[in-house]
Amino acid sequence: MATTKLKIEPPLLNSACPWATTLEDIKALYDSPFTGAVTIRTSLLEGFSHDDSIHQYTFFTPGKTIPSDAPKGEESKPPSSTSNPSEPVSTLNTLGYSPLTLSEYLGIINEIVGQRHLGTDTPTKKPFILSVTGTADEIAMAYALVANAAEMDEDLRLAMEVNLSCPNIASAPPPAYDKKELDEYLEAISDSKSTYRGRMTTPDSTPKVGLKLPPYTYSGQFEMVVDSLRKAKSSEPGEGSVIDFITCTNTLGHSLLLNASLEPVLNSESGSGLGGLAGAALHPLALGNVATFRKLLDKDPMTKGIMIIGVGGVEDKDGAERMRKVGAGAVACASALGRYGVSVFEKITKGN
């Protein structure tokens, strides 16, 4: 069975998040010598109608009262507005997806790699992980766009992460909680990879595909996912699952913050203020998800080669080492990136 799935060296990167939205965001992440890959904020084929009045985020310290006039969105960005920047940071968000389309992100990647061709950028070829979402048919179309881009430029190292885990879209629960829906996505991914595999010059140039998963809380959920991954066999002889990596875990939905006036801190599509919890408060659950998936994946040759990108509450070297200890092949962060900026990757690497 093939063991090379996705190469991320150094094994540190960002996860799909608001701080990986713009050209400037993505280039800063790409230029950092402490990142081994760059994940781009989750996009749709046609873009997402972002509305600052209902798509929001805030930083907070668990267990502490939030002022009634607490800032949110870009205004809440620490550390300058944080009284004690050494405290672990958590985030709550009611965000949707990126306002930029997948095609626009492919253009941004071409611009960044083009600068490297001109000798104005690092010569290192880092993978770009394009996080995408939509229906199963739209995911197949997204893979076609990514594969075509990879075919046209052999210097592009592209992968696609299918986000099946956003908790903030009204009337659209995360598909990764439903086996039937999950299997439909896996079938679409399998068909897409089979179509384009023969057109690539080398196996490594075929865009790898992963799943961004939500948090799971009981054994049957983990077993359901692994069973689907095991049955989604690659068409390539000698390979296992059609999925190359999983990213776990995304934010924990139906979380709520109340301010000093006992009102929701954030607005949301539903008007409830419920959103996705991330950062330090999620770290123990994320560690448990990574550990459980690694143990189950390793039990079967079909799934043993699937890499895990561990994400959830990592903001220092110790946190990254915990993730690696329980089975993450690479470690990603989002809340800490929003808090510290791209320098967080040097902080994690050097233990500063």
Score class of each variant (00 low, 15 high):
residue 316 D to E: 09
residue 30 Y to L: 01
residue 49 S to P: 00
residue 24 E to R: 14
residue 76 S to P: 08
residue 81 S to H: 05
residue 3 T to D: 13
residue 149 A to W: 03
residue 130 L to H: 07
residue 307 M to Q: 13
residue 182 L to C: 04
residue 127 P to W: 02
residue 103 S to P: 00
residue 53 S to L: 12
residue 202 T to H: 10
residue 312 G to V: 13
residue 317 K to G: 01
residue 106 L to G: 12
residue 33 P to C: 01
residue 303 T to N: 07
residue 244 D to P: 00
residue 27 K to I: 07
residue 263 E to H: 05
residue 206 T to V: 13
residue 142 A to W: 02
residue 163 N to Q: 02
residue 151 E to K: 14
residue 22 T to K: 12
residue 318 D to A: 15
residue 92 L to R: 01
residue 333 C to M: 12
residue 255 S to F: 07
residue 153 D to V: 04
residue 122 T to Y: 08
residue 23 L to C: 11
residue 44 L to P: 01
residue 222 F to H: 06
residue 78 P to H: 06
residue 140 A to C: 05
residue 191 D to T: 07
residue 239 E to A: 10
residue 278 A to R: 03
residue 319 G to A: 06
residue 240 G to N: 07
residue 54 I to D: 02
residue 29 L to Q: 06
residue 212 K to F: 05
residue 244 D to L: 04
residue 62 P to D: 09
residue 140 A to D: 11
residue 32 S to F: 09
residue 172 A to H: 11
residue 166 C to E: 07
residue 332 A to H: 02
residue 238 G to R: 09
residue 144 A to T: 14
residue 245 F to Q: 09
residue 26 I to M: 12
residue 235 S to C: 11
residue 88 P to Y: 05
residue 180 K to L: 10
residue 190 S to C: 12
residue 351 G to F: 05
residue 304 K to Q: 13
residue 33 P to L: 08
residue 333 C to Q: 06
residue 343 S to D: 15
residue 17 C to W: 00
residue 22 T to L: 13
residue 50 H to E: 05
residue 142 A to G: 10
residue 251 T to A: 13
residue 216 Y to E: 01
residue 287 L to S: 05
residue 251 T to W: 00
residue 347 K to T: 06
residue 20 A to W: 09
residue 33 P to G: 02
residue 43 S to G: 08
